[in-house]
Simulated assay, not measured.
Amino acid sequence: MKLKALIFDLDGTLAETERDGHRVAFNRAFDEAGIGWHWDGVLYGQLLTVTGGKERIRYYLEQYQQDFCPPEALDEFIAKLHQAKTQHYIELLKKRGVPLRPGILRLFHTAREQGLRLAIATTTTPENVTALLSTSIGRHALDWFDCIAAGDVVKAKKPAPDIYSYCLEQLQLEASECLAFEDSANGVRAAVEAGVKVVVTVNDYTRDEDFTGAALILNHLGEPDQPCQILNGKLNGFAYVTVEFLRRLSGETEQ
């Protein structure tokens, strides 16, 4: 079986968007709504165990704001609050952007040059995907991906495998023909349950999570002048992640 596609998570995997991007946008939406909530860095790290922005707001209400009375039906209130947060996030990206993590853009280019397909499987909204790719690379980058599976396209979000199953269906590929890239335990569980081998690049929020099932755990994908650090697994002599290495990791050269 040949490696045919690379599937990427978005937030935390492609770029460090959480602490100074999504968290700030949530707080601006809370201020705009006049509800007096504030998510600091520590609290936000705890809330990140819940995937999906709307789901995160609901969890916060259940755990920290049991006495809060929304001004309208709860589902509608959460949806509007999350929509406002998305707009604030997009504006943040337009104003200051968030750089891609080491190795991401290089891998995009070399993968495409060598005939691998690209896809995204994320719990964030399609608008956030567009905003990050457009501001960090350019709007043309949206055409690089054969599938962008995002937001509420599936009912159950990570750690459920649904988003990966959907992505595989859209690509019309078997799980063994793909590799996934994630930064969190929930993402790893989703990919592994869907049968997709996964590479983890940790960040400050996820560094100590349980990545059982991951094929490789790194600090980032690395660059020729910026070798990556192996946290678990083997790079087999490579100093950074290349397409050649990924083909070997997938088992392609063993056929």
Rank of each mutant, 00 (worst) to 15 (best):
residue 2 K to W: 05
residue 3 L to H: 08
residue 7 I to N: 08
residue 9 D to V: 03
residue 9 D to P: 07
residue 16 E to M: 03
residue 20 D to Q: 13
residue 21 G to Q: 09
residue 31 D to Q: 14
residue 32 E to F: 11
residue 35 I to R: 05
residue 36 G to Y: 12
residue 38 H to I: 01
residue 47 L to H: 07
residue 48 L to E: 10
residue 49 T to D: 07
residue 49 T to M: 08
residue 50 V to D: 00
residue 51 T to C: 09
residue 56 R to P: 11
residue 63 Q to S: 15
residue 71 P to W: 10
residue 73 A to V: 15
residue 75 D to R: 09
residue 77 F to N: 07
residue 84 A to V: 07
residue 85 K to L: 07
residue 86 T to N: 10
residue 86 T to M: 11
residue 87 Q to Y: 11
residue 94 K to M: 08
residue 96 R to G: 13
residue 97 G to D: 07
residue 97 G to P: 09
residue 97 G to C: 07
residue 97 G to V: 06
residue 98 V to W: 00
residue 101 R to F: 05
residue 102 P to Q: 04
residue 105 L to D: 07
residue 115 G to N: 03
residue 119 A to T: 10
residue 120 I to A: 05
residue 126 P to H: 05
residue 127 E to C: 03
residue 128 N to I: 03
residue 134 S to V: 01
residue 138 G to H: 02
residue 149 A to P: 04
residue 154 V to E: 00
residue 155 K to T: 12
residue 156 A to C: 04
residue 161 P to R: 08
residue 161 P to Y: 09
residue 166 Y to P: 01
residue 176 S to T: 14
residue 178 C to D: 10
residue 179 L to A: 06
residue 182 E to V: 08
residue 196 V to N: 09
residue 199 V to W: 10
residue 200 V to E: 06
residue 201 T to K: 02
residue 202 V to P: 03
residue 210 D to S: 05
residue 212 T to Q: 15
residue 213 G to I: 07
residue 221 L to N: 05
residue 229 Q to I: 00
residue 229 Q to A: 02
residue 233 G to W: 13
residue 236 N to W: 13
residue 238 F to H: 15
residue 245 F to N: 04
residue 247 R to K: 14
residue 254 E to P: 00
